Amino acid sequence: MKKLLIVGFLLIGVSAIAYTLYNNKTELEESATLAMKSSEYISVTVEKVSEKEVNRNFEANGVFEPSQELKLMSETSGTIVKINKRKGDYVKKGDVIVQVDDRLIRADYTIAQLNLEQAGKDVKRYENLANTDAITKKQLEDNQKAYNIAEAQFSALQKRLDDTQIKAPISGYINEEYYEMGALVSPGMAIADLINTSQLKLSVHVTENEISKVKLGDQLSIRVNAIKGETFTGKVDFISKKADGSFKYEVIIIMTGSNLDKISPGMFGTAEFQFAQEGKVLQISRKAIAGSLKDPGVYTIQNGKAVYRPIKVNPLTEGSIEVLEGLDSNDEVIVSGLINVKEGTPVKVQ
């Protein structure tokens, strides 16, 4: 009796296993069939190419800079014996900022001046003698040569004497000083930083798409971040011909108008570039572009299959593209599912 029960239970277990395996096989076959059907096409979404109004205005941020900025260097050596200007002072071009001890150079200068005067007298005397054939031509040439040497020595010492007065090469403010009374200076040593703020400029960087719209002389509205509620004006004075490492182009704007004394170098500003609008243009989503904007293309659908079409575009914003060539209004382009789409791929619009 027990053996019969055991055999019965075994039969029931085997039947249950067989039934489960059969069901699993059926489910696998159905899944395989469904996969085969789904692989027959790629599900995609599309959008129509449409005409939309486009705003070509843009803004660019930058930093205000002085029209001139330089580091004044010493061209002489010696001890500073007099200071005429200090940090923050306004200087005119040619003003003496510091005076370096010039006593030794001035003594050499005086000697060179006397030598030059004497050489000049000697040349005149020898020229008179040469007219009467009292001297040889070589004697006259030697005296003329001696005069030229004396003149060159005098000019060199005159330059060295002038260099002891360290002067401002431009008009502006002393933004930083590197000197003290009694300090020893040498050629190439920094003396002061000078800035000319009489005409401020705003340096901004724009993209390759934006630079094509900017022209020299364009009048712009400028906002200063630190000055609320007031707008200034500027004029485009420079446009770089080559992009920098971030693929942007420099545009320098010279500030014009009034109240510019409120703006200081180093402040942040925003230039508003405004242009005549061109009405409506053909536009598509950036997501529809297959590949890069340097070699753009899109996929359309013909007879249920994807068809690649190269196009020419003009970027408008991060999410919108202007179509210049290759598409017409109401054409439909694929915007999603592109990762699996190739030329001739069967597709189905969701």
Rank of each mutant, 00 (worst) to 15 (best):
K48I: 09
D142E: 07
K305D: 05
S212H: 10
S50K: 14
V335K: 05
K87L: 09
L324Y: 09
G88C: 04
T270K: 09
I211R: 10
I211Q: 03
V49F: 00
A134C: 09
Y22W: 12
S285P: 04
A168N: 04
K167Y: 09
L116N: 03
Q302L: 11
D295G: 11
N131S: 15
V341K: 07
I149M: 04
E278L: 12
P315R: 06
P265C: 07
R56K: 15
E180M: 06
N340V: 10
E40Q: 10
S329P: 10
K82W: 06
V49E: 02
N143S: 12
S38R: 04
K201H: 05
D142Q: 10
I166R: 00
E278A: 11
V251D: 06
I253M: 05
T79E: 15
L327Y: 00
I321H: 02
Q199R: 02
E343I: 10
A152K: 00
G62Q: 07
S77Q: 01
D237I: 00
V91A: 07
S198D: 12
R125M: 05
D218R: 05
L202G: 04
F64Y: 00
Q144Y: 02
I227G: 08
A183F: 09
K2S: 15
S336V: 01
E177L: 10
F154G: 13
N24Q: 14
K248M: 14
P315E: 08
E69D: 08
E127A: 03
S240R: 10
E47L: 04
Y178C: 00
N84V: 02
F268L: 12
Q118H: 04
S77A: 08
K235Y: 02
N303K: 06
I211S: 05
Y179A: 03
G319F: 14
Q144T: 01
Y299H: 02
N115S: 12
G245C: 09
K3R: 15
G269Y: 00
Q274W: 06
V236S: 05
G62P: 03
T26D: 15
L157F: 12
V281L: 15
Y109H: 15
D244H: 01
